[in-house]
């Protein structure tokens, strides 16, 4: 790890302003990606801004449309939250299967979506649950938040404050994990809002995406059989030693079917 300076602001405003004069500041959420990245010397920030002491970033609240979850909500907190389990159980389920227990005790939702790892789980929920990302300066439509591999609509120094998720009629998340790293090889979040079906896919490509072929098939017939023979048609699917693009495409359909079954 290279040397850096460490800051622990107490308010969102302070966290925003403190970054002003710094050479290359980096926001620190739970650190479950950032700290290992620093250890590998793959990043060299001048300063770390620890967001753990900011009350505005915390808490899980019920809203008229669903839930608002503070950016600093740890995965374990979301997974165990009665409110989340009652309101959007699929979201609690997703949070409860990120990494391992120790990672879930530190990792935060805001950190996960701001990092936009192609194999992270939360991005699938953001896309599937008609969400809105609240930052320290504006609101971003969840559909427009992820712009590429490790890329988001966030501006430099912009801080995710919370995400508002809409409560679906039913929803489920099914993940096929990388046997080694346990990240998602493919994760599929299926959410039903009235006649609209959203199918968000993480892990399969450079960035989370909605599988429109699967969405329209399920909108017409919400049964796993409706997905028989349908495969996502994309030329940007990931391929590595664990899964070829073909296999990932196949797994998208399989996981989507399993999510549909889990929707009940």
């Amino acid at each position: 790890m290279y040397s850096f300076s460490f800051h622990r602001p107490k308010t969102l405003a302070e966290a925003a302003s403190i970054q002003g004069g710094l050479e290359e500041p980096k926001l620190l959420g739970g650190g479950m990606t950032l700290v290992p990245t620093l250890k590998q010397r793959l990043a060299r920030p001048s300063d770390l801004i620890d967001l753990s002491q900011i009350p505005e970033l915390k808490g899980i609240r019920e809203t008229a449309e669903g839930l608002e979850i503070g950016a600093f909500a740890r995965h374990a907190e979301v997974a165990a939250s009665d409110l989340v389990r009652r309101t959007i159980p699929a979201l609690a389920d997703l949070a409860g299967h990120i990494g391992d227990r120790q990672v879930r005790n530190l990792g935060t939702m805001g950190g996960s979506i701001a990092n936009a790892d192609p194999a992270a789980d939360y991005p699938a929920a953001v896309l599937a649950l008609k969400s809105t990302v609240k930052t320290d300066r504006r609101e971003i439509d969840g559909d427009a938040f992820f712009t590429g591999m490790f890329e988001t609509a966030l501006e430099p120094a912009e801080i995710v404050a919370a995400v508002r998720y809409q409560r679906p009629g039913k929803a489920a998340y099914a993940k096929f994990r990388n046997p080694a790293s346990r990240y998602a090889v493919v994760g599929v979040f299926v959410a039903v809002f009235g006649s609209e079906v959203r199918v968000a896919v993480t892990g399969a490509a450079g960035s989370v995406f909605r599988a429109t072929e699967l969405e329209s098939a399920l909108a017409a017939d919400f049964r796993p059989e409706a997905l028989e023979g349908i495969t996502v048609q994309r030329d940007d699917l990931n391929a590595d030693i664990h899964a070829s693009a073909d296999y990932r495409a196949h797994l998208v359909t399989v996981m989507a079917k399993r999510a549909v079954v889990a929707c009940g």
């Binding site: 460490f6 479950m32 700290v35 290992p36 250890k39 120790q102 005790n105 530190l106």
Partner: peptide, 8 residues
């Protein structure tokens, strides 16, 4: 329980 190698 947390992993003390992943936190400063």
């Amino acid at each position: 329980a947390i992993k003390s190698c992943s936190i400063l």
